[in-house]
């Protein structure tokens, strides 16, 4: 039932006159006795409450003060006596903690955001690193892998050599073209026998 319902309700009070009779001394005595007991009870409870509060306050403050002094000393003494590191290492699964921490971090991004990699590289002793790299075997390997003589051969000797090669190549191309045309006109099927007995001048 909500407050609204209460407000809409009407309350009707009906009074009845108490019965009037001759005073009873026993009743008066009972009233006095009960009042006295109620008074005593109330006083006692008040005193009890007062004492309880006082004691609580006193005890709390004194105990707190004592604890404030004692706890650091005791804690220090305990810490002094215990090898915390050892305890942690023995009792705690460090791997799990570290792994879970690492899992929740994007380390690469963290380094990129927070670390000045250029500064580190600038400080690094590159020469020492290079000293440790087997450059000669590396160079030999590269030279072995690439066909260096062929590259030199293809690059020939300068622009003049290129021009001569081009003219010669065009000559050879034209030779073959003319030969093919002539062969077609004369209905020659066999390939031309171009094998000369020559050998390279050496």
């Amino acid at each position: 039932m909500t407050t609204e319902d209460w407000s809409q309700r009407e309350v009707v009070l009906i009074t009845r006159p108490a019965p009037v009779g001759p005073p009873n001394p026993l009743d008066a005595l009972r009233d006095v006795f009960s009042s006295s007991i109620g008074m005593a009870t109330y006083t006692a409870s008040t005193f009890a409450s007062l004492i309880e509060q006082t004691v609580t306050y006193a005890v709390t403050t004194s105990v707190n003060a004592a604890l404030d002094r004692l706890v650091p000393v005791i804690a220090d003494a305990i810490i002094e006596r215990i090898d915390l590191t050892d305890v942690v290492i023995q009792q705690v699964d460090l791997n799990r903690i570290v792994n879970s921490a690492l899992d929740s971090l994007d380390l690469t991004q963290l380094v990129i955001d927070r670390v000045d990699v250029n500064a580190i590289v600038a400080e690094a002793d590159i020469d020492a690193v290079i000293d440790r790299v087997p450059i000669i075997p590396l160079a030999n390997y590269v030279i072995d892998e690439i066909d260096l003589p062929q590259i030199i051969r293809d690059s020939t000797s300068g622009i003049a050599g290129d021009a001569v090669s081009t003219v010669r190549k065009q000559g050879v191309g034209a030779d073959q073209l003319v030969a093919r045309l002539a062969d077609r006109i004369t209905f020659r099927r066999r390939e031309r026998k171009l094998d000369a007995p020559g050998e390279p001048l050496a």
């Binding site: 010669r168 003319v178 030969a179 050998e199």
Partner: peptide, 26 residues
């Protein structure tokens, strides 16, 4: 093996062949 003269690789195939008309005429 090549010693001394440097030839373009695409010219190696026809070295020693009899030359044709155009080259000789030029």
């Amino acid at each position: 093996e090549y010693q001394g003269p440097l030839l373009p690789s695409d010219a190696l195939a026809f070295q020693g062949d009899r030359a044709g008309f155009v080259s000789r005429t030029v």
